[in-house]
């Protein structure tokens, strides 16, 4: 009898990452986009206490130098206190510039006129106020806002449209959440941030995976193969749970609009981004 060697299928594992290679690539991206193309040299990052903004701050510090990275902590009265202390641990680890700006007065100043606003609406207002502050700090500090959204939340539509996704450059937007964790471990992000359950922290006891109804590991594995073009039936054949596949498919297909600019009525042969086509860096 000869020894039989079995071929390995792709399986149901989430996508892997060479974190060192990705870090070098993203540092070069930040230097090119911020320093060379825009001649700015400074970045401003909203530091939430979560792993995405922590990794973004680490990358910016490596690319630009810690003295050129301004971290803004923007807690609301109901925010989990641990978010603030976790963000502080990133500032201390990197030696970046930090400022804390409470958003409670700004958020409640509006919401006093909308006492019936539910948690979703209140969360949206918080996200939009944070982005307002980030852009104003950008103008004040002559620093470019750097986005922190990852590929998983972009694909699942798990972000506030034209709030979280507005910064002009984003180093993490083509990395799945599980890859961001890999990158965080490589960069030396404080362990507590890597280990804790991800949360938008817009409501008490909120977690991303609770909101989404699926773990990031399962969602990322499905997304990675789905984007290549494998059908739902093929994914189920490969061992994914049918409910998970359907959930991911529904979220992606229901949120294409969130990954685009507003829909503009076309009336002429020179419609912007339809006929009149210029690259963003032209």
């Amino acid at each position: 009898m000869l020894q039989v060697i079995e071929g390995q299928g792709r399986g149901a594992a989430p996508p892997s990452l060479n974190a060192g290679l990705a870090a070098r690539w993203l540092e070069a991206f930040l230097r090119d986009e911020i320093c060379e193309r825009r001649s700015i040299g400074r970045a401003v990052v909203g530091l939430s206490g979560g792993v995405d903004s922590a990794v973004t701050a680490f990358l910016c510090a490596r690319a630009l130098g810690p003295e050129n990275v301004h971290a803004i902590r923007m807690p609301y009265a109901a925010s989990n206190p641990s978010s603030l202390s976790d963000a502080r641990s990133v500032v201390e680890a990197l030696g970046i510039v930090e400022r804390t700006i409470e958003i409670t007065a700004a958020v409640d100043g509006y919401l006093q006129f909308e006492p019936d606003a539910d948690a979703r609406r209140r969360g949206n207002v918080m996200a939009r106020v944070r982005m307002l502050i980030l852009f104003d700090q950008s103008a004040k500090l002559d620093a470019l806002p750097v986005g922190t959204g990852n590929k998983t939340e972009r694909l699942l539509g798990y972000f506030t449209w034209h709030a979280d996704d507005t910064p002009p450059v984003n180093p993490l937007g083509d990395l799945f959440k599980t890859q961001v964790w890999e990158l965080a471990r490589y960069l030396g992000v404080p362990q507590a941030l890597v280990d804790k359950a991800p949360s938008a922290d817009l409501e008490a006891d909120q977690t991303d995976e609770g909101d989404l109804g699926i773990t990031y590991a399962r969602a990322d594995a499905i997304l990675a193969q789905s984007l290549v073009g494998y059908s739902d039936a093929q994914l189920i054949e490969r061992g994914f749970a049918a409910d998970d596949v359907r959930l991911v498919r529904r979220r992606v297909e229901g949120t294409h609009w969130k990954r685009h600019l507003p829909t503009t009525a076309m009336l002429t042969n020179t419609a912007i981004n339809e006929f009149y086509l210029r690259p963003v860096d032209f």
Binding site: L17, N18, L21, A22, W25
Partner: peptide, 11 residues
């Protein structure tokens, strides 16, 4: 345009 950071030492 470079892509492919999943594994290996190079893109």
């Amino acid at each position: 345009p470079g892509r492919g950071v999943e594994s290996g030492d190079e893109l």
